[in-house]
């Protein structure tokens, strides 16, 4: 089975039913997407498939079709971090950090579809990713900052 992750094509020999998360982590050693719950409750595994946010624990690799996968490792440009990543660093969001690749991937996909979000929309978009350390106040601030930066161009 072939799949493209962060622009690189890979060949894997796994059951088509295997969730993309476990192909990334245990077959390809791409460990930015995290295992937290396995049932789409925590969002720590979030990646992009063709630019849209997807919980990698819910997508069977056999159903990926030709979808191009981007993980947190592939979000930045070679010479600069993604606006969302930079906002996360500026706001010192992470504590343990385990959920943050999911938070960042969700925020990046959200702002791509909805570049001028309201507070209410941020609350709706970012509440599906669980953080047990309680970094939410800074996530909220960082999404706002990233949105403002994106609007500046």
């Amino acid at each position: 089975m072939r799949l493209t992750v962060n622009g690189t094509e890979h060949e894997v020999d796994v059951e088509p039913d295997m969730p993309l998360l476990w192909v990334l982590r245990d077959e390809l050693n791409i460990t930015g997407p995290k295992y937290g719950c396995g049932i789409a409750q925590c969002g720590a595994c979030t990646v992009h498939v063709d630019g849209l946010a997807v919980r990698a624990c819910q997508l069977a690799v056999g159903d990926l079709a030709d979808g191009a996968v981007t993980t947190i490792e592939g979000l930045a440009q070679p010479d600069s971090l993604h606006v969302v990543q930079q906002a996360w660093i500026d706001h010192q969001v992470a504590q343990c950090g385990y959920c943050q690749s999911g938070q960042i991937m969700q925020a990046a996909a959200f702002l791509d579809l909805n570049p001028e979000p309201t507070d209410e929309e941020i609350d709706a978009a970012m509440s599906a990713i669980l953080c047990r350390c309680g970094t939410y106040p800074r996530i909220r601030a960082a999404v706002h900052a990233a949105a403002a930066k994106l609007q500046e161009g």
């Binding site: 460990t31 995290k34 295992y35 947190i72 979000l75 930045a76 010192q92 992470a94 690749s101 960042i104």
Partner: peptide, 15 residues
């Protein structure tokens, strides 16, 4: 440890 936690570079035991 902030930047590695925002780029996926941080390695936890599980990684």
């Amino acid at each position: 440890d902030m930047e590695p936690k925002c780029t996926g570079a941080e390695k936890y035991g599980i990684d």
